[in-house]
């Protein structure tokens, strides 16, 4: 199942509509910190695209450049080579067009949950009342209504991650990047939030790229799993998840799930250049 990038790109079916997000020949390297050192190549020739409503998981060992990949896609860092196009346009400014949620909640301690949640709308210049109304409405779906007036440090880790996702999703971007969003949580909270995430995400509109090193999480949540490996990191394989979505935790006991999991683990551990 391990296929090199070039091969799988050619095998990809041509989309009926242009992909929502298209990553082409992406490379990222950092100049050497000191003279005499070699530059640090983090990513090389990364290619993939994401369609509307698609949920993609990128899995790989630490140091394979997963977070760097998301930072470049988000527009926080510029690629050393290649391009990222949203809606077919590689020139389009991606900051402010792609939602991004991190492993830490990174909420502002002096703002309440409501004030943290609405900050994206605030930055767009939306009127405060309207922003508050929208925030409160989505907060209800997120189960945050009771804590809207509390500050982040009064909440549990799970609630803080919900608030962080509320902030990320309120401006209604078409692409959502998740960088190990539940990685800092305990196992019980994590699985509760995984189930919850599938229920709150608007499947029709949002395309999601989830970065994780949790194989089960990747299979449970995504339509397609990309394996990022090597130094510099490149996409070593991709797997379609042939299970209907949304999936419950019980799906982890299904034979296809288990087969996919062992294939994924194998591809993560197999020798790679």
């Amino acid at each position: 199942m391990t296929v090199r990038p070039r091969a799988w790109r050619e095998s990809m079916t041509p989309w009926t509509s242009p992909p929502l997000l298209d990553v082409r020949g992406l490379a990222k390297s950092y100049p050497p910190r000191r003279r005499g050192e070699a530059p640090l190549h983090v990513l090389e020739n990364v290619n993939f695209s994401v369609r509307e409503g698609e949920f993609i998981a990128v899995i790989g060992p630490s140091g394979s450049g997963k977070s760097t990949l998301l930072n470049v896609i988000a527009g926080l860092e510029s690629p050393s080579a290649g391009a990222v196009a949203i809606e077919g346009d590689p020139q389009l400014e991606r900051l402010g067009r792609i939602a991004y949620m991190h492993q830490q909640d990174l909420l502002l301690p002096w703002r309440t949950v409501l004030e943290n949640g609405r900050i994206g709308l605030e930055l767009q210049g939306e009127a405060k009342q309207e922003a508050n109304r929208k925030t409160a409405a989505l907060a209800e779906r997120f189960g945050l209504t009771d804590v809207l007036d509390q500050r982040p440090w009064q909440l549990s880790g799970g609630m803080r991650q919900r608030a962080a996702l509320l902030r990320a999703t309120l401006p209604e971007r078409r692409v959502l990047l998740l960088d190990e969003p539940f990685g800092a949580l305990d196992a019980i909270t994590r699985s509760a939030l995984q189930a919850w995430l599938t229920s709150v995400l608007d499947r029709q509109k949002t395309a999601v790229i989830l970065v994780t090193h949790d194989v089960e999480e990747a299979i449970l949540l995504s339509d397609r799993v990309l394996v990022l490996r090597g130094q510099p990191g490149a996409i070593a394989a991709q797997f379609h998840v042939p299970l209907p979505r949304p999936r419950s935790q019980a799906a982890a006991a299904d034979p296809p799930f288990i087969a996919l999991k062992s294939a994924l683990i194998h591809s993560l551990q197999a020798p790679w250049q």
């Binding site: 900051l95 991004y100 990174l106 900050i119 994206g120 930055l123 990320a168």
Partner: peptide, 14 residues
């Protein structure tokens, strides 16, 4: 301010 917090607001379009 941590760079990551700055990045969060930048992705939100600040």
């Amino acid at each position: 301010t941590d760079r990551e917090v700055v990045d969060v607001l930048r992705t939100l379009g600040a």
